[in-house]
Simulated assay, not measured.
Amino acid sequence: MSRVLVVDDEPQIVRALAINLRARGYEVSTAGDGGEALLVAASHPPDVVILDLGLPDLDGVDVIAGIRGWSSVPILVLSGRSDSVDKVDALDAGADDYVTKPFGMDELMARLRSLLRRTTPAESQPVVEFGDVRVDLAATRVSVGGTEVRLTPTEWHLLEVLVRHPGKLLSHRQLLAEVWGPGYETAQGNLRLYVAQLRRKLEPDPSRPRFLRTEPGMGYRFQP
């Protein structure tokens, strides 16, 4: 039974989420503010956190940073803030995904299941497969339909970062810092170019990508 910590200051949302989660077999803990959330997370470590950004005592981004100080538990941000800057701040602080209020319960549960599937990280899996693509992380080789595909070092590094975080929404800043390093955090043109190159080499239809997906204004997601 997976443990879910729901953090929100709106009782009706907490109640609805708790009912739906328990009906699906999850164990549920709740918190109404950031301070309580940090205490509950530390005393009863959850398998996943559903976190509202607009809390009465702490900003949700600060709660994310507090949890990330000691845990890599998946964090699904749930918020009424529509500004992409808020979403990117949450992702950069360590959130794994983002759902905007009002939300559909089926969509939220699907995102939750995707995050829980990542409890066995790709770091322990030497080979990642999706569609006709086979990525051998140990041998640094990629093949499509059994035919090896040559990638540049930058293309490989970008693909490696994405496939090691299946289902996770990675912000532009996160990807640029990881692949290109300090000083490139705003070089989004580089990122778009290399994502397009990977899609041409790996996607069945690069104009309608199935696996290397764009989240407009926020970043990219590898969806196996």
Rank of each mutant, 00 (worst) to 15 (best):
S2T: 07
L5T: 01
E10F: 06
A18F: 01
A18P: 03
N20T: 07
R22Q: 12
R24I: 15
R24M: 12
E27P: 00
E27N: 05
T30S: 04
A31C: 14
D33K: 06
D33H: 11
G35F: 11
A37C: 10
A37V: 10
L38D: 07
L38Y: 01
L38P: 02
L39E: 15
A42F: 09
P46T: 04
P46V: 05
V49P: 06
L51E: 01
G54P: 00
L55H: 09
L55T: 10
L55K: 05
P56I: 04
P56Y: 11
D59L: 10
D59F: 02
G60A: 09
V61C: 02
D62P: 03
V63Y: 05
V63D: 03
R68T: 04
W70H: 06
W70F: 09
W70T: 13
S71E: 09
S71W: 15
I75R: 12
L76C: 11
L78F: 13
S79P: 00
S79W: 00
G80T: 09
R81D: 09
V85A: 10
V85I: 15
K87R: 14
V88Q: 02
V88T: 06
D92K: 12
A93N: 02
A93Q: 02
G94L: 06
G94R: 06
A95S: 04
D96N: 15
D96V: 03
F103E: 14
M105Q: 14
M105D: 11
D106G: 07
E107K: 08
E107Q: 14
E107W: 01
E107M: 12
R111G: 07
L112P: 13
R113Y: 10
S114G: 14
L116W: 13
R117W: 15
T119Q: 13
T119S: 14
S124T: 15
S124R: 14
Q125C: 13
P126H: 11
V128A: 09
V133Q: 10
D136C: 11
A139P: 07
T140Q: 12
T140G: 04
R141D: 02
V144W: 04
G146L: 11
T147R: 09
T147S: 13
P153W: 01
P153E: 02
T154C: 02
V161T: 11
V161E: 14
V163R: 06
H165Y: 07
P166F: 04
K168G: 02
K168N: 13
K168S: 11
Q174W: 11
A177Y: 01
W180S: 06
Y184A: 07
Y184V: 00
A187S: 15
Q188E: 15
G189C: 00
N190C: 01
L193H: 06
Y194L: 08
V195W: 01
A196W: 06
Q197H: 05
Q197Y: 13
L202R: 12
L202W: 02
E203S: 02
R210D: 13
R210K: 08
T214K: 08
E215F: 04
E215N: 05
P216Q: 02
G219E: 00
R221T: 10
F222S: 07
